[in-house]
């Protein structure tokens, strides 16, 4: 069997804070993505989902450091690559798009110029050929008048059009892995639907693997094959999309699902109160002892306050980090192993 396209193996990432301390923002994260798969990483702000995704491209700031683990792309550990080697991978084999498209667009160059740059950098196309390919790409991302967009500057485009232009740039080199960090969060639902449909179509055409980072369970329901739920820097649940929505196992996942006001709920059910999760996500430098969710959980028991539950198998292809789903008796050793990693 060949190695999966992307393997993140027990990755921990720390941030140095101003007062010289270090906080772990992503802890012991493992996940694999096969070719053509869409993996969604869901979580609230501060869950570590964006840091995890940016680490794949080694885009983390100066104050971040890898504490342990490997990120293997086609079997190669990206963490051992030199900056020069990385530059060859970035944008070519792995592309990333952000919530804010202006993060990827230079305001002083036309869209066409930037798109041609991206094309020239990663392929042999030059001059006229590059221009034609650029127009073709814009058409593929659903821009109806690509010639006029080519000559326009980014600020003349709407948010949805900018995001399309960024996607065009990202797919220019036919990447095998596309990381999308909240790509539709800043957009209207109508434009979000267009962009999500576009990503699906592009994937069907090219077999690109997508790692999609989002806080929106609706986006997950639309897009995901596999789902990773993160809370306070850790994976708390991992499952294929249908099983997760059928039966969320972790109280946090359950809470998120209940808290989501849905259009498809029955009219009567709508008059009930939304079940909210009390409190807020704890600060990473003030994490509670034991299970990180125990301060907000409705099912907290004594063991939850004492020791961190391990991410343990719960049925076929499912993992969950909760003492309720995987009772502490008999797996004490795993618990201590998980606890030591802090």
């Amino acid at each position: 069997m060949t190695a999966p396209l992307l393997e993140i193996d027990r990755l921990s990432i720390g941030f140095k804070t101003d007062n010289g301390q270090a906080v772990t923002v992503v802890e012991d994260l493992s996940l694999t993505a096969a070719e053509g798969e869409t993996i969604c990483i869901v979580g609230e702000s501060g869950s570590g989902k964006s840091v995890a995704s940016q680490s794949i491209m080694r885009l983390l700031g100066e104050n971040a450091f890898i504490q342990q683990g490997e990120i293997r792309f086609k079997g190669d550990n990206l963490l051992n690559k030199s900056e020069k080697e990385l530059r060859r991978i970035r944008g070519k084999d792995i592309a990333i798009i952000f919530q804010e498209p202006m993060a990827a667009l230079n305001p002083v160059f036309t869209v066409g110029h930037q798109l041609r740059e991206a094309i020239k950098l990663h392929s042999k196309r030059k001059g006229r050929e590059a221009k034609e390919y650029a127009i073709d790409l814009l058409r593929r991302v659903g821009i109806s008048r690509p010639e006029s967009i080519m000559n326009g500057y980014p600020h003349t485009l709407s948010g949805g059009m900018k995001q399309r232009a960024v996607i065009a740039m990202a797919i220019a080199s036919k990447p095998q892995l596309l990381i999308a960090d909240e790509p539709t969060t800043a957009l209207d639902v109508t434009v979000q639907a267009q962009i999500l449909q576009l990503l699906k179509r592009l994937q069907e055409g090219s077999g690109t693997t997508i790692v999609l980072i989002t806080h929106d369970l609706g986006v997950v329901a639309e897009m995901a094959d596999k789902v990773v739920v993160m809370y306070a820097g850790q994976i708390v649940e991992q499952a294929d999309a249908e099983s997760l929505f059928d039966r969320p196992l972790h109280p946090y996942t359950q809470g998120l699902m209940h808290a989501m006001p849905s259009l498809q709920k029955a009219a009567g059910a709508n008059d009930e109160r939304l079940l909210s999760i009390p409190g807020t996500v704890p600060a990473l430098n003030r994490l509670p002892q034991g299970c990180r969710f125990h301060t907000r959980c409705a099912y907290t028991q004594e063991c939850c306050k004492q020791s961190t539950p391990p991410l343990a198998a719960a049925g076929e292809n499912r993992l969950v980090r909760c003492w309720l789903a995987v009772p502490p008796t008999g797996i004490e050793q795993n618990a201590t192993a998980g606890g030591n990693a802090i």
């Binding site: 109806s144 709407s158 949805g160 059009m161 639902v189 109508t190 434009v191 979000q192 639907a193 267009q194 999500l196 449909q197 929106d216 369970l217 609706g218 986006v219 329901a221 639309e222 995901a224 999309a241 249908e242 929505f245 059928d246 989501m260 849905s262 259009l263 498809q264 709920k265």
Partner: peptide, 19 residues
């Protein structure tokens, strides 16, 4: 609006075009 469950996905969803 996104669906609330993966099984409710519509394959060829009619999407409001343009802006």
């Amino acid at each position: 609006n996104p669906v609330s469950h993966p099984r409710l996905r519509v394959r060829e969803k009619v999407v409001l075009d343009g802006e």
